[in-house]
Simulated assay, not measured.
Amino acid sequence: MSALTGRALAELILVGAVCGVLGVQVVLRRLAFFSETLGHVIFLGVIVATMAGTDVKVGAGLAAVGAVAVMGRSGLASRRHHQRSGVVVSGALALGVVLISARPGFSKDLTAALVGSPLTAGTGDIAAATGVTVLVAVALTIGHKELTLAAFDPVVTRALGYRTRLIDGGLLALLAVTVVTAVPAVGATLPLALLVGPAASALLWTRRILPATLLGGLLGAATGAAGLAISLHYRIATAAGTAVICGTLFALAATTSTLTTRSTPARQRACDATAT
Rank of each mutant, 00 (worst) to 15 (best):
4 L>K: 08
6 G>D: 10
10 A>S: 11
13 I>M: 15
18 V>W: 10
18 V>D: 04
19 C>V: 11
19 C>T: 02
20 G>V: 03
28 L>A: 10
29 R>A: 12
33 F>R: 00
36 E>N: 12
43 F>C: 13
44 L>C: 10
52 A>C: 13
55 D>C: 07
56 V>P: 11
57 K>H: 15
58 V>T: 15
59 G>M: 07
63 A>Y: 02
71 M>P: 05
73 R>G: 12
74 S>A: 15
84 R>N: 09
86 G>W: 06
86 G>M: 01
90 S>R: 08
93 L>P: 00
96 G>Y: 06
96 G>D: 07
99 L>Y: 06
101 S>C: 10
101 S>H: 11
101 S>Q: 10
103 R>T: 15
103 R>P: 05
108 K>N: 14
110 L>A: 13
116 G>Y: 08
117 S>C: 05
119 L>S: 14
122 G>A: 05
123 T>W: 13
123 T>G: 15
123 T>F: 10
125 D>S: 13
127 A>D: 08
129 A>E: 11
132 V>N: 03
135 L>Q: 01
135 L>H: 00
137 A>M: 05
144 H>D: 09
145 K>T: 14
147 L>F: 15
149 L>C: 03
156 V>W: 06
159 A>S: 14
161 G>P: 04
164 T>W: 07
171 L>Y: 10
171 L>S: 02
181 T>P: 00
182 A>D: 03
182 A>E: 01
182 A>W: 00
186 V>A: 08
187 G>T: 07
187 G>A: 08
188 A>E: 11
192 L>A: 06
212 A>Q: 11
218 L>N: 00
218 L>Y: 01
226 A>Q: 03
226 A>E: 00
226 A>L: 14
228 L>E: 02
231 S>H: 01
231 S>W: 04
236 I>H: 07
236 I>S: 14
236 I>Y: 00
239 A>W: 06
243 A>P: 05
243 A>F: 03
244 V>I: 14
250 F>S: 02
250 F>R: 01
256 T>E: 10
260 T>S: 12
273 A>I: 01
276 T>K: 00
